[in-house]
Nucleic acid binder design. Structure first.
Lengths: 245, 245
DNA sequence: GATGCTGATGACACTCAGTACCCTGAAGTA
DNA sequence: TACTTCAGGGTACTGAGTGTCATCAGCATC
């Protein structure tokens, strides 16, 4: 119960050097202690501020809602993501760029596995928190989509492509992230996310020019046919795979 | 202001033949009238029940929350979608199937354009409703993903693929749907959605097995390598494609 | 027609999240 | 010292959502 709190993102303004935790951090710690003890819905804001020893009004000064205290670091992560996307050069593959942006979220989770896993279990149980999480994920997705929309502005399908790719990237990232969280935060989270993101990137870059990518593999695609498959069918499928139709 | 209400889904149990609207419909109509007049947040549940001439407690008997009254038909549409997916035959392309499932949502919107457009404008303005909509969309996405996960169970990447494809399908559908709603519900919504869904399908059926239609192909997979690719790399990729690693 | 059951509705009270408003005290500044 | 500023405390209020009980209409049964 001592590893909770907004740890893992020091050197920010919400941390003073004297070791004494900020009121914000104290509130997060108190809230999580109670949430884990008796559940989210069974804990009132009054309980939290009583444990933290502060006034009720102060809680809402730091967190706009009771749900916000469960996701204390997303606001910063979202800002980091925006900044990261703004700072990129224009000759980089946009899809690779949003994949890297998604990795920022993973990094935030991985910085404090215990906290992340506790939060994951809590969120899984409580509908209200699940819904709140949706709105957080949605904001990440909007950020990625806005970036892609700009980068794809010259394409006729730019708008649709931006939407779909950002949704796919977020889904892939979250799929790998949740799998890591389900495992209790054991092992390396990065590998799974890399794989998942690469999976999406491949689907959305193969169809035009093969373009980017590390340079290994990618060059090899596999054909397996049943015996006696008519040759025209093989040819047709090769052609449609290559996008020549 | 008279075209609001849960219209467009008659022949359901919430409609009695005597022409007198159900209490549920009366509540939806009263709520929308007030929401459009003075806004969602400026309207209390007390206002709604007063206008509808019913008791306050009755509101919450029909709608679990104030937000629910804005999306009175999604519950049924979700049930339709589940039923549709359950009733399909197993030799149909899963991705085509979920695309068709997504079209059920479009159909619901298109059944009552005026209502849909009013709701769209309302939802766009009110953060609370936007968040609620996210959870509705999420449930559709979960339904599609659960179906795909089952259908992709034999693939090594089945889980990830199910997540990513359902996210992409939902994103494409919503992109086209919103574009239609922004236009004020003019013209044909179907064409745009068809195009968007086809866009996604193409990206996700070319990449592995060409598969495509019902029973054709499926047997043909394509290998293309660069000249002079080392044989070990070809073998490795064949193995990993087959999931033998 | 009286009795009893049931399901829909209304009435009332309560909890709790979130907000508006104002007070206090500490720190800094002229 | 007087003034300002600002973080925080205290109180009262609004409004969503819930639990509980009373009421009443419809309907069957005796």
């Amino acid at each position: 119960m001592s590893q909770v709190g907004g740890r893992g993102r020091r050197s920010q303004k919400n941390e003073n050097d004297s070791g004494k935790p900020t009121m914000r951090d104290a509130l997060v710690a108190a809230a999580f202690q109670l949430f884990l003890e008796r559940g989210f819905e069974q804990t009132t804001v009054d309980d939290i501020v009583a444990l933290a020893g502060v006034g009720r009004r102060s809680f809402f000064r730091y967190f706009p809602s009771k749900e916000d205290v469960v996701f204390p670091d997303h606001e910063r992560c979202l800002a980091d993501m925006t900044e990261f996307l703004d700072s990129g050069s224009d000759d980089e593959d946009p899809i690779l760029r949003v994949c890297d942006a998604a990795r920022l979220v993973l990094r935030m989770y991985a910085e404090n596995p215990t906290f992340s896993v506790q939060r994951y279990r809590l969120t899984k149980q409580v509908p209200g928190l699940r819904h709140y999480e949706l709105s957080v994920v949605w904001r990440y997705e909007r950020t990625l989509a806005a970036y892609l929309r700009e980068r794809f502005a010259d394409r006729p399908d730019g708008d649709l492509r931006a939407e779909v790719v950002s949704a796919a990237v977020v889904a892939a990232h979250n799929n790998a992230l949740r799998s890591w969280l389900r495992s209790g935060g054991q092992g390396d989270a990065t590998a799974g996310v890399d794989e998942a993101l690469e999976y999406v990137r491949r689907a959305w870059t193969c169809e035009g020019a093969p373009s980017g990518g590390p340079q290994e593999a990618e060059d090899v695609v596999v054909v397996i046919t049943k015996r006696r498959t008519p040759m025209w069918r093989v040819v047709r499928d090769i052609e449609s795979t290559l996008g020549n139709d």
